[in-house]
């Protein structure tokens, strides 16, 4: 069985800007992402990093090319729904359980994200009316897991990132680093197979940024693929592999 959990095959994403201008955010990108590795995607602002993450996570659809997901490594509870693709055809599945995400409809992509994907956003995107522990739990509110079990999981994660005394604080009562750690716990509580982090240290000082990256390292050690988009090449030391992206093209 292949180690790859995600595989991109000549993925292109074109945006229209204004009436006539066309932006090629991704240009025939081919890439493999393995289980348990930290892949750093480095590039300047506007190079296509975020677009790449959005396509991989199913938030955005590429204009052309294919993105394969290894269903053999899918999270618990994820049901592959080949018979319900948006175009009415069965999505293509290779013998190695690689399924083309680009053929899936929104409902299937939602299931994909729910059971396999965790997000860490640059601006944390915590829900301001929820306490830290509730923000973490919110990932599992639509799940079948009983409330006390969800609470216990959330507490364990917050303890792990050193926020045991901040469980009942609201986001605006936390520092940037603390908020980012809560966001990481929110991504991790559902034990995702892939974690996408878009500039996770972008709004933090270098020391706090280092702490966050060490958390990312721990996540990958537990078996998840971690894909980090950043413009800061100094974070390279925390990664297993780094690719550079410039004008939508990958360079190694």
């Amino acid at each position: 069985m292949t180690d790859a959990i995600l595989k991109l095959d000549k993925v292109t994403k074109i945006y229209k800007q204004g009436r006539s201008e066309v932006v090629r955010a991704l240009d025939k990108v081919s890439l493999e992402i393995n289980q348990g590795e930290i892949l750093m995607v480095v590039g300047p602002s506007g190079s296509g990093k975020t677009t790449l993450l959005n396509c991989l996570s199913g938030l955005d659809k590429p204009t052309s090319g294919k993105i394969f997901f290894n269903t053999a490594r899918a999270g618990e509870g994820f049901k592959y729904m080949a018979e319900k693709t948006s175009d009415g055809e069965s999505s293509r599945r290779s013998p190695s359980n690689m399924v083309d995400l680009t053929a899936w409809d929104q409902k299937q992509l939602t299931q994909y994200r729910r059971h396999n994907v965790g997000f860490v956003f640059q601006a944390w995107e915590l829900i301001p009316t929820l306490k830290a522990i509730e923000n973490v739990e919110s990932s599992l509110y639509p799940s079948r897991i009983p409330g006390p079990e969800v609470r216990e999981k959330a507490k364990r994660l917050l303890r792990k990132v050193g926020l045991m005394d901040k469980e009942y604080s609201y986001p605006d009562q936390l520092s940037g680093g603390e908020q980012q750690r809560v966001a990481i716990c929110r991504a991790l509580i559902k034990e995702p197979r892939i974690v996408f982090a878009d500039e996770p240290t972008g709004n933090l000082d270098s020391e706090t940024g280092g702490q966050i990256m060490r958390q990312m390292k721990l996540i990958s050690r537990e078996g998840a693929a971690v894909i980090i988009a950043t413009h800061n090449s100094e974070l390279r030391k925390f990664s297993d592999r780094m690719v550079k992206i410039h004008d939508g093209e990958i360079t190694y």
Binding site: Y112, R114, F121, E125, S138, S139, R186, K190
Partner: peptide, 16 residues
């Protein structure tokens, strides 16, 4: 609306 975006990214269905 931003909360909606976060929930969608987290895998919430439209109905949820």
């Amino acid at each position: 609306r931003r909360e909606v975006a976060v929930l969608r990214a987290m895998g919430y269905e439209k109905g949820e």
